[in-house]
């Protein structure tokens, strides 16, 4: 290691090889993923997020929601993700191809949101979500800065939240969601990836074994 230039060269080559193998290797495998066209349905999956939802993802990212929520469902038998009703199949790379900043997350202080727009028996309504964002709950922080409390002039706004109890504004005032709150909720309710791609089907061991016998 007395040879300085050789030492530096070795350092950089090692780092470049590792980066290329992991990052470029994965890119080579997944970089060309295309939407899956279903002949029966006559349309392709995943659908592009709506404009509102795409903007909502930026709000989700800048508030740091991913610090507590993941957006990845693991395969059956690996964790209780599907038993918890977070999705009917595991998440696959194709689910994320149209997302500008995928927020797969690494911490579950709260539930997974990968299929939040398809919760059973029925997904939460926009009003419930806005109320949660405005007032919070025991476990969820409130984000009142996403809302505007303003004096009612004339008729009250159709977008005003119907709040009761402590959270309700004083008489003559109304709470109106800001554009950011609206896009965030649109994003959350748009989170849904129901289509079962071939690669998302769980590998059934029995079938695999039988095929091995043939």
């Amino acid at each position: 290691m007395k040879n300085g230039p050789l030492f530096l060269f070795g350092l950089l080559v090692s780092a470049v090889i590792a980066w290329s193998a992991i990052v470029l290797g994965a890119h080579g495998q997944l970089g060309g993923l295309t939407p899956w066209f279903d002949d029966g349905e006559g349309k392709s999956h995943p659908a592009r997020p709506t404009g509102l939802a795409a903007r909502g993802q930026l709000v989700y990212a800048d508030l740091g929601c991913a610090a507590c929520h993941t957006q990845q469902v693991r395969r059956p038998g690996f964790g209780s993700d599907q038993e918890r009703g977070w999705g009917d199949r595991q998440s696959v790379a194709r689910d994320y191809i149209f997302q500008e900043r995928p927020q797969i997350g690494s911490s579950r202080i709260g539930p997974d949101l990968a299929n939040f727009g398809a919760r059973k028996p029925q997904p939460p309504s926009a009003e419930t979500l806005l109320a949660l964002l405005h007032s919070g709950s025991d476990r969820h922080p409130a984000f009142p800065f996403l809302f505007e409390t303003r004096k009612i002039e004339g008729e009250s706004s159709a977008r005003a939240l119907k709040l009761s109890g402590k959270a309700a504004p004083s008489v003559g005032y109304e709470v109106v969601p800001s554009e950011r709150a609206v896009t965030l909720v649109a994003y959350l309710l748009n989170l849904n990836s129901p289509y079962v791609y071939p690669e998302a089907k769980p590998l059934v061991r029995a079938v695999a074994k039988e095929e091995g016998k043939k």
Binding site: I22, V23, A26, H27, L30, G31, L33, A93, R94, D95, Y96, I97, F98, Q99, E100, R101, P102, I104
Partner: peptide, 11 residues
């Protein structure tokens, strides 16, 4: 030049 989808998570 953000990579696509989950490749961002890998990078």
């Amino acid at each position: 030049f953000p990579m696509r989808g989950v490749l961002q998570a890998v990078a």
